[in-house]
Each structure stands twice: as structure tokens, then as C-alpha cells.
Simulated scan of single mutants.
Amino acid sequence: MDKLSCKAMAAHVPAPGQTPEWAWFLHAIPSLALLVSTPQDPYYHAEGDVWIHTRMVIEALMRGPDYIDGSDEERFILFYAALLHDIAKPATTVIDPDSGRIGQPGHSKRGAIDARILCWHAGVPFAVREHICRIITVHQLPFFALAGNKNGQSAEFLIRKLSHELDLRLLSAVAQADMEGRCYEKKDDCLVGIELFREMARDEGCYGAPKAFADPHTRLSYMRGAGIAPDFVHHQNAGSRVTVMSGLPASGKNHWVAANRARLPVVSIDDAREELGLRHGANEGAVAHRAVDFAKEMLRGKAPFVWNTTHLSAQMRKKTLDLLYAYDAEVELVYLEQPPQVIFKRNTQRDTSLPNKAIERMLFKWEVPLPTEAHVVHYFA
């Protein structure tokens, strides 16, 4: 099979009124073939397997005004978000042995990572790829957003936050198609919920644009749960100014720091590992403890510094960011990325104990930072 390319992907995005070349997609993206044999709970999906549902979703999407009137880029995003929105259901399917009920827990988050890896190898432009992945991550949220979520976050909060992470018009279009493309007895209720989601976003002034905030600190404080109004400046205590790096190994983080923050102290997991004389994967707890102790020393003195490590998953970044914000730090998050061939070639040429196969395993934890994670987020990809 030829290597999948962004050019080929774009060429096969159907125009409104055209029939998608289903056979091409099954050939070009082999993981889609697994959808054919993946069952779904008949209560929510009486139409049948995941591939039947996916085709119905795309057909519904293509009838909608956002697809018909969208730009070429918007159609690309919409089409591949819909095509790949359930790509992880085969890997996450569980069947209750007693009731026979079928579930696919975590398929949205895992699906976004699978789509990211696929699109990275295909050379899809960064911003387009991440828009697709962000939609996949939350594609079910508009179904029930008006009720808030299990973390106690309100619909108002979710809409404001999401508006800084993706275009709510495109998310709503995919969510509506996802609901229309199934046989479910409560489908009409969910479609009403999606339309109300749209209306609330319009009322908030963030349907197709980010919600306005007084300044970056007010926005970040709100996103982290402060009960404040977006229009009024939230006081910022003095603290360290910290540059937090993020990116796959061999993506150029050390080079960027040397070129742009050369005069600042650096908290580095690699340096801590080297100081302790350890290889990758050996006594990572001690390595992290050494790095954190140095960071706390900088934070107590309100000194500027760089935190340089992969910070590849949202969970890894959260640990670092929670610590920094507890000390009132002002954070810029710098994300770097390179094409796969560059990453793997560079890594083989480095003096490192990290093999390429380990990087390949790391990809399954790869979550690109969201714009809502720091005061400012820079993407170099």
C-alpha cells in the first residue's frame, strides 16, 4: 500500500452532492476496516456496526450547511473528524458478560491520539490536524452539554473554554451528524440539545470565535476554575516567569532554549537523569524529584527559568503546571514539532539511551497542549 499523504486525503474529500469513495478510504486507512466488525450497543446504535454508523454520519454531515458552505479547509476538517471520530472503538470495545451491553469507554480521547499519529505521518498541516483531533476528543460533548459534566462544570463554562480550543461551529456540525447518523430512540432530544448548545454559544459571542476575556491571566484563572467574570481583570500576584517546553524527543527543544532563553536557569529531566547517572526508564521517581526540588527553589525566589522536558501528555503537563500556578508563576508554554522522518533520524544521531522504538510507544500518550493550559501557548510545527 502506498503511504497515505495529505495531498491524497484532500483529493478524496467529496464535494457536496458527491458520494465518498468508501473503498479508497478502507484501502488507504486500514484501521477503518476494523470498524466493519466492531459492534455497538443496539440501544444507542440500532443501525449496526461502527462502519455503518460512520458512513451514515458522513452522509448526514454532507447534507448540512456547514459542509455545503464551508471552505476547502473546513470541509477537510469536518470530513476527517467525522471519518475518524470512532476510529478507536475497536480498541476500546468491552462487552459485559452478564448483560451483553456493549461499551467503548475512552474511545474519544484514544481516537484523537490515533488520528493525530495518522495525520502526522500523512503530513497534514499542524493547525488542521489539531482541529480534527480536538473535535474528535469532545465530539459527544454537545449532546449533553447543557446539563454540565461529571466534574461539576457548567454548560456556560464548557462553551467558553471550548471556544478557545476549536471552532464551535465545526464541533456542532460533527456532533449533529453523529446523532443524525444513527438509529436511537432519543435522537430528537439530543438534536434539540445540540441546537441549544449552538444558541448558548451565540449568546456568549463565541460561536465561531473565542470568548473574549479581559486579559490572559483572567482567562487562565477562569479556565482553572476561578469563579470570576471574563470581562473584569483578575489580579495577578507576582511570581516567576516560566517557559515550559513540550514536544517529542528530538523535536528541537534544547536548541530552541539555547537560541531563545540561553540566560535562564533550566529545569531538565534529562539533566537530572544525567546527574544521577541513570538511563531512560530507570528510577524515574528520583529523577523527577531532583528536577522538582530545583524548580521549587526557583519559584520560591520568584526567579525566571525554563522547564525543559517532553511534557507529552496532558497529565504530565498538569503536574508541572499545577506546581507552577501554586507559586503564582506566569507561564508561557512552547510546543515544538517535526515530521516523523526528522524525529527518528535525529534521535539515531543523538547521544541518548532512548531508542526510536521507545518514541513510537510514546506516541500513544501524545496530547498536544491546548491554548487554555497557560497564559500563552506558542506552537512551532
Rank of each mutant, 00 (worst) to 15 (best):
H164V: 13
H164D: 10
H164Q: 09
H164L: 02
E165Y: 09
E165Q: 12
L166Q: 06
D167K: 07
D167A: 05
L168R: 03
R169H: 06
L170D: 00
L170T: 06
L170M: 04
L171W: 03
L171P: 04
S172K: 07
S172L: 09
A173P: 06
A173V: 14
A173Q: 02
A173G: 08
V174G: 08
V174W: 05
A175K: 00
A175L: 10
Q176L: 15
Q176I: 13
Q176H: 12
D178S: 01
D178R: 01
D178H: 00
M179Y: 01
M179T: 04
E180F: 02
E180Y: 02
G181D: 05
R182M: 09
R182T: 10
R182V: 06
R182E: 02
C183E: 15
C183Y: 10
C183D: 15
Y184K: 15
Y184M: 15
Y184I: 13
E185K: 13
E185P: 11
E185T: 11
E185L: 13
K186I: 10
K186C: 12
K186E: 14
K187C: 10
D188I: 11
D188K: 09
D189V: 13
C190P: 00
L191W: 07
V192I: 13
V192W: 05
G193A: 10
G193M: 07
I194A: 04
I194T: 01
I194F: 01
E195G: 11
